[in-house]
Amino acid sequence: MKNYATATNVDEGIVYKYPQELLPVSQEAMPAVGYAYALQQKVADSFFKAGVIPVKVDIK
């Protein structure tokens, strides 16, 4: 539980009261993560081209 508290920056007392489990991301979920990054990058690029943000942002 201490590792979870440290990883999530949550007080250990709260973690012990409401225990959670950290699980690895499955291979099936990986394409969805890449797709989400691609969408976020597209939005950031659009904002840059429109002048909403002054510098190009790399989402990664």
Rank of each mutant, 00 (worst) to 15 (best):
K2F: 05
Y4M: 09
A5V: 09
T6N: 08
T8E: 08
T8S: 12
V10L: 08
V10Q: 09
V10W: 10
D11R: 13
D11A: 11
D11Y: 15
E12F: 05
G13A: 14
V15G: 00
Y16N: 02
Y18S: 00
Y18H: 08
P19C: 01
Q20F: 13
E21V: 04
E21Y: 13
L22F: 15
L22E: 07
L23A: 14
V25P: 00
V25Y: 00
S26H: 04
Q27E: 15
E28Q: 06
A29W: 07
M30A: 12
P31F: 00
V33Y: 08
A38I: 14
A38R: 10
A38P: 06
L39N: 11
Q40G: 06
Q40I: 07
Q41V: 00
V43D: 05
V43L: 10
A44Y: 09
D45S: 02
D45K: 03
S46Q: 11
S46F: 09
S46H: 06
F47H: 13
K49L: 14
K49V: 02
G51A: 05
G51H: 01
V52M: 08
V52Q: 08
I53Y: 06
I53L: 09
P54H: 15
P54G: 01
V55P: 15
V57Q: 02
I59S: 02
I59K: 08
